[in-house]
């Protein structure tokens, strides 16, 4: 493990030095709130945020992606991303979520690999920023994460007053730090102590959600009428799924102009929309919002456990914060787990 300290004001210099031909993504205060965007100078970066509104999944799995282009009836060009990225500042929960998306898009059985997502991932360095003060809606420690979790990150950074402590957690992270080693000062003992204390404090302050036995429970109560009650508030929008760092469902559609030229695109889609499962015959296996919200919960807390061995929830709390009717997933899980 490599460690090093820089001053906050030198962050962009460090990132751009190590970047080479890579693009640098960092949190900015954008029109719609905190978001991750390609940056070109220090003053664009903000470190004053609990988390971004949109999860960083869109960096690797953009909401709109061209799969190929065509003209008339012939395939013209297959597009795959070429850019290499350095992503700075994603929170440990979101870094963890990337390891889940990796499982979906790489397919452990090795049958179908998703070149669009994987090309970007393969070339990316993830530098995540440990949480000093988790939000009241955060519950990462209840779903296997931590405010200073390292999973999914190549480097974990602690914010210490006017300094940043870098700690590599993968070979790729170590290489990154080596490339820019001249810019790092040695991490002193009090830096390390401060980081450790900060991590402990953040972790201890987290609310605990008891999700023991949840999978077995939700599997058992699939038909329970309580689902009607807990999903009654749902408006059927896709805000929770679009903001969620692990939701990855998508649609594939073609768009063409009058000359017959166009592209095949993949766009985010949501299990909360009736059209998502509507058969051509008119039959719909999930006709109502109870079934659709149940699918969302089952998918995250049961089906992915069967298929990938993980709960696909990192406790970021975005779905709680931004739900128009405050339909709180913690409440739903609590209620189900008590059944």
């Amino acid at each position: 493990m490599a460690q090093g300290v820089i001053k906050k004001e030198d962050l962009y210099r460090l990132l751009s030095t190590a970047a080479g031909k890579k693009k640098v993504y960092a949190p900015i205060d954008g029109v719609g709130g905190i978001e991750f965007a390609e940056i070109h100078e220090q003053k664009e970066i903000t470190l004053d945020y609990s988390n971004s509104k949109l999860s960083p999944k869109s960096i690797f799995f953009p909401q709109r992606e061209v799969l190929c282009t065509f003209a008339d009836d012939a395939l013209e060009e297959v597009q795959t991303p070429k850019e290499a990225l350095i992503v700075f500042g994603i929170r440990p929960c979101d870094a963890l979520s990337l390891t889940y998306l990796d499982k979906v898009f790489s397919d452990s059985a090795g049958r179908f690999k998703d070149p669009y997502y994987l090309k970007r991932r393969e070339n990316a360095v993830i530098i995540s920023l440990a949480c000093k003060e988790p939000r009241a809606t955060c519950f990462c420690t209840s779903v296997g994460g931590s405010p200073s979790g390292k999973e999914g990150a190549d480097i974990l950074v602690y914010e210490l007053a006017d300094k940043l402590l870098f700690e590599s957690c993968s070979d790729r992270g170590q290489d990154f730090m080596k490339t820019a080693s001249v810019l790092f000062k040695q991490a002193e003992e009090d830096h390390k102590t401060a980081a450790k204390e900060q991590a402990e404090k953040a972790k201890d302050g987290m609310p605990v959600l008891n999700l023991n036995g949840l999978k077995e429970r939700v599997d058992k109560v699939f038909e329970d009428p309580l689902w009607d009650e807990i999903t009654r508030n749902c408006l059927g929008c896709g805000a929770c799924t679009y903001l969620c760092p692990t939701c990855h469902c998508f649609d594939i559609t073609d768009e063409e102009n009058r000359k017959g030229e166009g592209y095949r695109i993949r766009t985010w889609d949501s299990c909360q929309y009736p059209l998502f499962t509507l058969h051509a015959s008119g039959h719909n296996p999930r006709v109502n919002k109870k079934q659709r919200m149940r699918q969302r919960i089952m998918h995250k807390y049961s089906y992915t456990v069967d298929n990938y061995g993980d709960i696909f929830c990192v406790g970021c709390g975005r779905c709680i914060l931004y739900c128009p009717v405050n339909l709180d997933i913690r409440d739903m899980l609590n209620t189900l787990n008590k059944l």
């Binding site: 889609d269 299990c271 499962t277 051509a280 296996p285 699918q295 089906y303």
Partner: peptide, 18 residues
């Protein structure tokens, strides 16, 4: 049969349970 898009287990819509 279920509605499908990707056909390769990624797009998430044709599931029946897990």
């Amino acid at each position: 049969e279920n509605r499908m898009k990707c056909g390769i287990g990624k797009c998430g819509r044709c599931n029946v349970g897990s």
